[in-house]
Amino acid sequence: MSGRLIYLMGPSGSGKDSLLLAARDALAARGCRIARRVVTRSKKADGEDAHAVSETEFAALEQANGFAMSWRAHGLSYGIPRIIDQWLAEGYDVLVNGSRAYLREARRLYPELLGLLLTVSPDILRQRLLQRGRESLAEIDARLARNAAFARGLDGSVVMLDNSASLDCTVGRLLTLLDTDACVAG
């Protein structure tokens, strides 16, 4: 029996990290493992529960075939550890925090993956990005435009999950979606 890969994507500020943290126990109770990404950023950086490494360490892991998937975005390198293949083979569902730009390659590697796009209304997303204070207004506007273009380009193979309301509501919708998808696929 093989598990399924759940590929969560969404723009910065959509709440992916908050969703993963809030849903962690409920997902584990359903036999779903969350893969911890490897990222080339400071160990002190706020945000996701990632394994921070240097560019040199990342390159060595990549060279040693330590990643099932890896990509570059926004000046950083991201990797999903190879252990996910073992988990999938053991029948576990595995949720990864993926990249929208890497979706095509991820689907090539894992044709049966369930793509989830975490969305949030543009006004709420703009507000969250402004509150973070990491980018200029022009950079935020460019992010919002890229996000809208990506959503328009979807072919129906990706499920939208709105995170504009409370986090508890989004967790509930995620769990319902995964339970429903399991029933449909099974």
Rank of each mutant, 00 (worst) to 15 (best):
G75K: 04
E112I: 06
G47F: 08
L61N: 02
S99F: 04
A145Y: 09
T170S: 10
A89S: 09
G31F: 05
L144N: 06
R134Y: 05
A68H: 00
H51R: 15
L117G: 02
V39L: 09
L154T: 13
C169M: 13
L109R: 15
I84S: 00
T40M: 11
L175R: 00
A60T: 12
G13S: 06
D162N: 14
A23I: 04
R107P: 03
C183W: 08
D93Q: 09
V171P: 01
D162K: 02
A185Y: 05
R146W: 11
D181W: 14
V53E: 00
G98E: 03
Y102A: 14
R134I: 07
A23D: 04
L61T: 03
S18D: 09
A101Q: 11
G75N: 08
I124K: 15
H51G: 07
Y102R: 12
R82D: 05
T180A: 15
R126P: 05
L167F: 06
S164Q: 04
S12P: 08
I84K: 02
L129T: 02
L113I: 06
Y7N: 13
V94E: 00
L21V: 14
A151E: 14
R82K: 15
R24S: 14
L154I: 13
V96K: 00
S54W: 11
A29Y: 10
S70T: 10
R72K: 13
D46T: 15
I6L: 14
V53Q: 00
G115D: 08
L103A: 12
D181T: 14
L174I: 05
P11S: 13
C169T: 13
L154M: 15
G115I: 01
R126S: 12
L117K: 08
R33C: 10
R82T: 02
L8M: 10
A151Y: 04
L109M: 11
G75L: 07
L144M: 11
Q131V: 09
Q63W: 04
D46C: 12
F67D: 02
Q131W: 04
L175W: 02
F58S: 00
E55L: 12
H74G: 13
T170Q: 02
R104H: 11
A89L: 05
R72M: 13
P11C: 13
L95I: 10
A45R: 14
C32L: 08
E62P: 00
L177P: 01
R126A: 15
S54Q: 11
A23N: 05
L5V: 12
R143F: 06
A138N: 13
G10F: 04
G133Q: 07
R4N: 05
G66R: 01
L118F: 09
